[in-house]
Simulated scan of single mutants.
Amino acid sequence: MVSRRFLLSGLAATVVAASPDPAVRIYAAMTFRPVLERVLQAYRDAGGSAVAAYAPTPVLIRQLAGGALADILLTADPAWMDEAVRQKLVQPLTRSDLLRNELVLAAAAGSPTVGTITSGFALAGLLAGGRLAMCDPEHDPAGRYGKQSLQSLGFWPMVEGNIAIAESSLAAVVLVDHGEAKAAVCFKTDLHGDERAVAAGVFPPDSHAPIVYPVALASTARGKNAAAALAFLRSVESLRIFADFGYLPAA
């Protein structure tokens, strides 16, 4: 099993198949690494060839703007895909929303759970004076969604002075795993395979902006192989794998 520390590593590339044709180059937000490895394994089994590079979406955009070559861009934030369109780094007519996600409050395994978090949720009791882990709302989509929900439900004034900033939402869950935070605001998919944390509740979808993940062909995409790989990402087979990790279809 791939360790969670490995999943938190920075930019990494994985060659999924050898082929006489150039491997399709996929630039993907770091959050997709666990599931995309499975998807690319299925692509390899189908005879495809691809290289996946992972980093925070802003880093990927900077690299593309600096001349890096890619065939497909999969982002964790519509706003950054908008920026990629603005800078002409992707082919806008190929853009679509591939997946959706849910925002949850993670807590140590065994903690009481509810369905949907409301303004009456006993967050203070759950934290018990400990820290709430989350991404930086100024620089990370997960942090931005989290702050929106906490503000909408009236919890922000209570927690803003006692937040543990994590480099990613998965890293926020790791802080809960290690007992360094009492709870974490994260994506539902960040809890996949984690036996030390559970979703204490789900933030209402109307308490934050929609969590959707756009994908598009890059402006530097090469030929039919790139289009075929993009079609595979959108296929029923791929969406089934994404669903196994907790992702929801975009439509």
Rank of each mutant, 00 (worst) to 15 (best):
residue 196 R to T: 09
residue 197 A to R: 08
residue 197 A to W: 00
residue 197 A to T: 15
residue 198 V to Q: 01
residue 198 V to K: 02
residue 199 A to G: 10
residue 199 A to I: 07
residue 199 A to L: 10
residue 200 A to E: 10
residue 201 G to T: 05
residue 201 G to C: 00
residue 201 G to I: 00
residue 202 V to A: 02
residue 202 V to D: 00
residue 203 F to Q: 02
residue 204 P to S: 11
residue 205 P to W: 04
residue 205 P to R: 12
residue 206 D to E: 15
residue 206 D to W: 10
residue 206 D to N: 14
residue 206 D to K: 09
residue 206 D to G: 05
residue 207 S to R: 06
residue 207 S to T: 15
residue 207 S to P: 04
residue 207 S to N: 06
residue 208 H to C: 08
residue 209 A to Q: 13
residue 209 A to P: 00
residue 209 A to V: 03
residue 209 A to R: 10
residue 210 P to D: 12
residue 210 P to S: 12
residue 211 I to W: 02
residue 211 I to R: 05
residue 211 I to V: 15
residue 212 V to F: 05
residue 212 V to K: 11
residue 212 V to C: 04
residue 213 Y to A: 07
residue 214 P to R: 07
residue 214 P to I: 02
residue 215 V to T: 09
residue 216 A to F: 12
residue 216 A to H: 11
residue 218 A to H: 01
residue 218 A to D: 09
residue 220 T to R: 04
residue 220 T to N: 07
residue 221 A to L: 09
residue 221 A to W: 00
residue 222 R to M: 12
residue 222 R to V: 14
residue 222 R to A: 14
residue 222 R to C: 07
residue 222 R to G: 04
residue 223 G to K: 06
residue 223 G to N: 13
residue 223 G to D: 15
residue 223 G to Y: 04
residue 224 K to T: 14
residue 225 N to K: 14
residue 225 N to H: 13
residue 225 N to F: 06
residue 225 N to P: 08
residue 225 N to A: 15
residue 225 N to M: 12
residue 226 A to H: 03
residue 226 A to Q: 04
residue 226 A to F: 03
residue 228 A to Y: 00
residue 228 A to N: 11
residue 229 A to W: 06
residue 230 L to V: 09
residue 231 A to H: 11
residue 232 F to T: 11
residue 232 F to D: 07
residue 232 F to E: 08
residue 233 L to T: 04
residue 233 L to K: 10
residue 233 L to H: 03
residue 234 R to Q: 15
residue 235 S to D: 10
residue 236 V to K: 15
residue 236 V to L: 12
residue 236 V to N: 12
residue 237 E to I: 11
residue 237 E to D: 14
residue 238 S to W: 06
residue 239 L to S: 08
residue 241 I to G: 01
residue 241 I to W: 03
residue 242 F to C: 08
residue 242 F to G: 03
residue 243 A to Y: 03
residue 243 A to T: 05
residue 245 F to L: 01
residue 246 G to E: 07
residue 246 G to A: 02
residue 246 G to C: 01
residue 246 G to D: 06
residue 247 Y to D: 06
residue 247 Y to M: 00
residue 248 L to E: 08
residue 248 L to I: 13
